[in-house]
Every structure is written in structure tokens, then in C-alpha cells.
Design a protein around this nucleic acid. Sequence first.
DNA 1: CAGTGGATGCTCT
DNA 2: GAGCATCCACTGT
Length: 184
Amino acid sequence: MTLRELLSRSVHDVAPALVGWTLLVDGVGGRIVEVEAYREDDPASHSYGGPRGRNLVMFGPPGRLYVYRSYGVHWCANVVCEGDGTGAAVLLRALEPTHGIETMRARRGLDDVRLLCSGPGRLTQALGITCEHNGSSLERPPFTLLPPEQRPAVVVSRRIGIRKAADRPWRYLAAGSQFVSRAA
DNA sequence: CAGTGGATGCTCT
DNA sequence: GAGCATCCACTGT
């Protein structure tokens, strides 16, 4: 299955399926170990209420990156999926660093590998993702998405850091990973 | 450990 | 003017 075919499916299929893939930006990054699903009929989603303003990329074709500023200070990155204007995307919440660790240490200003990419704001800082990448295709440089050699076991839990629709079990983690932002 | 509060920009009311 | 899909430093056990 191609990346495009994978991302064209329901966000509830795409989100767990992305766990284990390796995301690189200019060769720097790691293995995806934590994501969350968001969709249009979801009060916690930026796409809730239909396309307007900053959320337009969420209603575009699958395989693009939706980047927004969080709490005025951080960037958060989502993989747009489904397509056909459904407004669904997968929030990238944590990576296990594998490539370019020294570059990520320098960008983050710390040494502990477990803290480099264990949170949505940390991850974008470590990989150098900013609003300049909003709307960019993940199928082209500087991005690389590599499939896992073996599909990892995935654990489901409730989403983190939201007040609305906080009870929906739409957070997906690599089982047993030490690099998630919070244990399941 | 846990809990609290500040930084800071953008969207929405 | 409020609220936010966050992170970090600081406080107190």
C-alpha cells in the first residue's frame, strides 16, 4: 500500500497505522510512537464547524501537513488524511528519536533523548517544523515517511490536553514505548 | 514526586 | 477579552 492510499482511509484507521512509521525532516527525526485523531464532527478539532481561517489545510488533500501555533509559543503538526474535504487529521504527539539526534539536541537545548520529541511542541522544535511547512506535502522533500519493518503493537487511550470531547479514546501509542509524552 | 503559574500569538465571541 | 490539541521553571511535600 502506498502512503497516499494509507492516508486516504478513515482517520481511525490512519492514526493507529501511522504508529511505527519513521518521520524525517531533512534527515532528522524518528519513529512515530504517539498520535491523536481529530475529525470535523469533533468539538475538540480545529476543523469543527467547517473550513475557515487557519483550518483550510485540514480540508485539503491527504498527505499534507497542517501546522498551527499552540499557546502562542509552540508549533503542532498534523497529517491530513481521508481527503474529499472531510476535515480529518492526525496530531503527531511523540517520536522515538533515531536520526540526527545531535541536531535535535542542539535545537532543543538539552541532552536527554527521551525529552527530545516526547510532546507535540517538542517534536516540532526538534525537527524544525514551523508554519512555513503548513500545507506542505509529506511525499516530497524535505519530508520522508518510511514504513515500519514490523507493525508495532498499538495501545489506545484518551486524548491529552483538551477540555472538549476529552473522553474519546482517540490517542494511539506504541505499546511500552519510553518516548511517549505520557503513559497510557 | 505533585501542583501552580508564566510566556505568548492567534482565533473566536 | 477569553480560551487554547503546550512546555518549562518553580514551589512544596
